[in-house]
Design a protein around this nucleic acid. Structure first.
Lengths: 299, 299
DNA sequence: ATTCATTCGTGCATATTCCGCATGAGCATA
DNA sequence: TATGCTCATGCGGAATATGCACGAATGAAT
């Protein structure tokens, strides 16, 4: 059965004529005749009594008309009700990011986001665990990576530089740290990610690469713990700029090799916004993407 | 949009899998995939978020599901509600017959019909005027005719013989009426139908036809009036057996030429039950047809 | 880390359905 | 009685739906 059959049936019932209904809908009368006949077969009911030149609803037809007219209205309302959740920034936005990125970069912005979109509820899943985006019904994910592969749409939020930092207190009581290879004489604070624990790679302005093996007896997670440890003077640490630039600006930490690019895995990494598809993108996702880009690019 | 799409959507939403839904419905998974994609385009909404191996309703999808599930139930109920009017003898049956046939042959039976079908309401339109069966929403018509043509289904209810009758009182004070041609000496009571007013045709047992020109200064309608006039001794009248047999049996009228078949138009006429179609015949029409055949054939 | 099995998406060909045209039968009106 | 219009139906072409085959992706098992 086709919904179009039902709306046609209602139309014919009110016009009292196949031919008039056909004219109004720019159809051939034969199509109207067949469609009504098909509907009668599908229902197992005679809906209209008709001869040439005359047409009248049967009793069953009147009952069926009474039954489906509200239903057709409800179908439209169901579509509008579903649309309401995506056409304006309302409902619930489920957002995921790594624990530290979420905590330091996203959470501080949510007060203003709430001001701007009072009807939108945000559920932030900030974890370093692997998150199943489909099963968790995630609307928007933030991933820290050189690049994003897979079927999801990815738009870069920001580029990330990593810095080797230590506190002034630590530096005042430790062997000199002038060039990267000096790190071998220090016990570093390490992030609990395998790729971050063996060696750090330095690239100078000329593009020369230096790979420095590092050691450390303190391996922490999440990245914020490593930051706190560095601030406490426990040792040098490799941390992203979005995490430590404020401490550096305030003199709480020092960027030990500012003229180098440093990476534990790959250079040219960054934070990416990831969402399932540009097609049928709910407004709530759109506004969060725009908001984050606006806020994070301003800093 | 197709209702099948909607039921498929509900199915997928509950099974959480295109492939599982396809198996259950004996479809190819590609058809399920396309159907859901078509529904999403028609609605302008993403209903499911999916990758390979994972499928979850979106918020809009959940809302739409909540909206249409009751609607699908209502559609079934609308069909059942419409069917209820035809699947059992209830509702209103609109019946038409000629004024006299309705009054004398149908009305006396309606008390028993009501006993038998208490939930069925009968509207009898007994008139000698031409009745538009479609416009008047007639379920069942009774027509007196040699045969029925046209698109309607016709089943014969009874055969009709016409009789020339007069009252004993009239005969006692009038010229002898021995053979049909004797009628030319009498002023007859005529039915106000053109075909009944010029000549009556007599057919004897051997098949010999005699056409007798008749005259009368009293032309009445409906046929019951002619009967009453004959009973009052005003003159001979040509009337159908179902109208006068009781008077004959009681001696109130005499059949003047019982060994002849008489007709004003054609012989071998009868009463026919006429209804629009055997297909999708409502129960109420069926039971009335069966009832009339049972009752009228018993008398 | 690799392999395997399964899911969802899509191109292509085929089957099915829908639609308009033409025509006929029937009916109401002039 | 003739005419014009409605509804029904055969037929052919256009549009849509479906299955098959295949590929990409993913989760589970090894």
């Amino acid at each position: 059965m086709n919904l179009e059959w039902l709306t046609l049936f209602v139309d014919v019932a009110y016009r009292g004529s196949f031919a008039a209904t056909a004219r109004e809908r720019n159809l051939d009368p034969s199509s109207v005749s067949r469609t009504i006949a098909d509907l009668e077969v599908a229902l197992g009911l005679r809906l209209f009594q008709r001869t040439t030149r005359k047409l009248a609803l049967t009793e069953a037809g009147e009952r069926y008309l009474a039954g489906i007219e509200p239903i057709l209205d409800e179908l439209n309302r169901a579509q509008e009700y579903a649309h309401a959740s995506v056409d304006s920034p309302r409902g619930t936005l489920r957002l995921t990011a790594s624990a530290t990125f979420g905590l330091r970069c996203i959470v501080p912005l949510l007060a203003e986001f709430r001001e701007r979109y009072p009807e939108l509820r945000v559920e932030g899943l900030f974890t370093d665990d692997n998150v199943d985006l489909v099963a968790e019904r995630i609307d928007l994910a933030i991933r820290l990576s050189p690049q994003i592969e897979g079927n999801y749409v990815a738009t870069q939020l920001m580029k990330t530089r990593y810095r080797v930092v230590a506190s002034p207190d630590y530096l005042g009581r430790s062997p000199a740290l002038v060039k990267p290879s000096d790190l071998t004489a220090h016990r570093c604070v390490l992030l609990a990610v395998r790729a971050y624990q063996r060696r750090w790679v330095f690239r100078d302005n000329m593009g020369n690469m230096t790979e420095v093996p590092i050691e450390g007896d303190l391996v922490l997670s999440p990245a914020a713990s490593v930051q706190v440890a560095a601030l406490a003077g426990i040792g040098p640490a490799l941390l992203p700029d979005w995490l430590v630039d404020e401490d550096i600006a305030a003199g709480r930490l020092l960027d030990l090799f500012p003229s180098y690019s440093v990476a534990a895995t790959m250079f040219d990494t960054g934070a990416w916004l990831i969402y399932p598809s540009r097609e049928f993108l709910p407004k709530k996702v759109r506004v969060m993407i725009d908001f984050l880009k606006e806020k994070i690019r301003r800093t």
